[in-house]
Design a protein around this nucleic acid. Structure first.
Lengths: 358, 358
DNA sequence: CTGAAAGCGCTTACAG
DNA sequence: CTGAAAGCGCTTACAG
């Protein structure tokens, strides 16, 4: 079982691979072929330092040669924990979901973990039972929660009780840092506000998302901060309650634009609603951006498909996802302070729906 | 262990549940509490008919009472096959991906299977190895392939060799019926063609998707069939090669609309490209639908957000997904002929981008 | 119709 | 630094 064997028994190596054409090699095969116990092979798999360097190398060589990969199912059974990561979500926007999935997968690539998707409905009576069953039955290694389920305070206690790792993605911190990835939406709201105020707008309208969504509050908070910087305040008469949908954006804009003192600019709390604002403006024959400036939030593909192309706030959803799964798999020691990387922060993208007021 | 026990030992039942607060019940618990061997419990789990009705009922009662659910991991290890279904895809459209996932999950609800998502890149050198490793390592129960990976003839032989079930979703049949869900895109293309020809258009342009996508060919084929019905033919001078992207739709339309004999209507092979056509028309100051009719394909949300709202062909992606996972889990006996349900067929949705030619 | 034994491919104490 | 035994929670032959 030394290096000398390679040139000595070329035929032996051939048949070695042949043995595994219709059967995958197991830990026992590796142990047998390398002359150690399976426990030692297990140590190598689990990167235990308590293995002599020579032995480890030889074992790795054999593993590579016969194309061995440990069976996640068997490992999971013994570990009492699978190598599956669940994404639990209720965000209805397809672009958000897909970007987030891609990001989570980015952070999981090469780790041996797989992503199991699990949409849910917070309003359902069986919601909590469903989540619990999902996590418990699959013995999930961990779970990623995205807005707005991530904001539901009933879920974390259950996960803690079951002993399931979790990361909550939200616009603002809601939990201990080791359980959070924060998107800082108020910064995006402030960027939108500064842009509009900077163009000279003073009557700036706001269309919110549903009240139960933290992101909507954060985006509004940012807007208000920016206005205050300019000595302005958000006029309650220029605020409308939307629901993050295209239709609600349309209705709210129709409403706002027909009020006695209508806004010269509207900040819609997401792109879907901003698209509705554009439709409403057309319906009322109000030209954008000449007579009305519009800013959205998300910077999904839709923003570039609209006409005029939408000025909006970019959220690095995929990057946030990547961080979330990375953090779930490799918990950051509490000592290490996470620095805010600008790549994970929202940023304004100026296109064609904003201009100075007439 | 009869019905009499319930009122007789309420305390016994209480402590029974208490036993499983920090530990999930296993097959052994069910066997012990019900006084049979675990093999018999296993028979009930696997719906074997060889269990006396009384015994089965009693076992089911106990299972329900203590909240027993078999461990998919342990079951998978013994079965040499997991309860995971993989979705392998490379369609870049988020809406398609999400709708398909929802459909697949619809068909899996209540079955105990979970969905593992696996985007891929057919152009990658390691593509086939990646797919094989994914399926083999996770011992996937089965795999769903969506366009355009579903059209790759290198994949099915690998899956067959590994012994992994699979369903290919495509616009046209490419395999034995038990492995296919067909979306019949030529029917959608024909509907688009009939609509435009019916409005009186004779110079109808077509923007294709990438040549390697079957759906683009099928949609074109349908268009041509419809034109022939009206005694028309598709003029090669009015055809442009797109790539299913917004940008390619824009470029192709710019090209087509500036040719000497430009079309009065354009059928773009998907909504993304149709959105590009609308932008191009605006750029050239061509009014839609007055001077140019436009039809897309997909009926994704985008179609309603555009202005004018896009006439397009609806594809029941979610329904197709539901059928695919249902078929994967419950293979249809070869004898049963599948009838084409209209709910799974494409259908025209007329909105505001089509009108008679001037 | 039912069960005792062995096994799926790993890991966890426990030794040495 | 290394290993023999027992176990994770199920199922598959094989009996009866």
């Amino acid at each position: 079982m030394t290096d000398g064997e390679k040139p000595a028994e070329p035929k032996g190596e051939k048949s070695l691979r042949d043995e595994f054409v219709d059967r995958r090699p197991t830990i026992n095969d590796v142990a047998r072929l390398t002359g150690v116990s399976k426990k030692t092979v297990s140590r190598v798999i689990n990167k235990s330092p308590a293995v002599k360097e020579n032995t480890r190398e030889e074992i790795l060589r054999v593993m590579h040669e016969i194309g061995y990969a440990p069976d996640p199912q068997a490992r999971g059974l013994a570990f009492r924990r699978s190598f599956l990561i669940g994404m639990i979500y209720d965000n209805p926007n397809p672009q958000y979901v897909v970007n987030m999935q891609q990001g989570l997968l980015d952070g999981m690539r090469g780790t041996g973990f797989e992503l199991v998707v699990h949409p849910c409905d917070r309003a359902s009576e069986t919601f909590l039972v469903d989540v619990r069953n999902f996590v418990e039955r699959q013995k999930l290694y961990g779970v990623i929660l995205t807005p707005s389920v991530s904001e539901d305070e009933r879920v974390p206690p259950i996960l803690r009780q079951i002993g399931c790792e979790f990361i909550r993605i939200a616009s603002v911190s809601l939990d201990e840092p080791e359980h959070m990835i924060v998107s800082h939406d108020h910064l995006g709201g402030a960027a939108a506000g500064r842009h509009l105020a900077g163009l000279g707008h003073t009557r700036i309208g706001f269309i919110s998302g549903r009240d139960s969504f933290r992101s909507s509050h954060e985006r509004r908070r940012g807007l208000e901060e920016a206005l205050v910087e300019r000595g302005l305040t958000l006029d309650e008469d220029l605020v409308a309650s939307g629901a993050y949908t295209f239709e609600s954006g349309f209705e709210c804009a129709l409403d706002l634009l027909q009020r006695p003192k209508s806004p010269t600019a509207i900040f819609a709390a997401n792109d879907e609603m901003a698209a509705g604002v554009l439709q409403a403006a057309r319906t009322l024959d109000i030209r954008v951006p000449d007579a009305l400036s519009v800013v959205g939030y998300d910077n999904f593909q839709l923003a570039e498909r609209l006409w005029p192309r939408l000025t909006t706030v970019h959220t690095p959803t995929r990057e946030i996802g990547r961080r979330a799964s990375t953090k779930l798999i490799n918990p950051v020691p509490a000592v290490e302070v996470e620095r805010e990387d600008p790549r994970a922060l929202p940023s304004l993208v100026i296109r064609d729906t904003t201009a100075p007021p007439i």
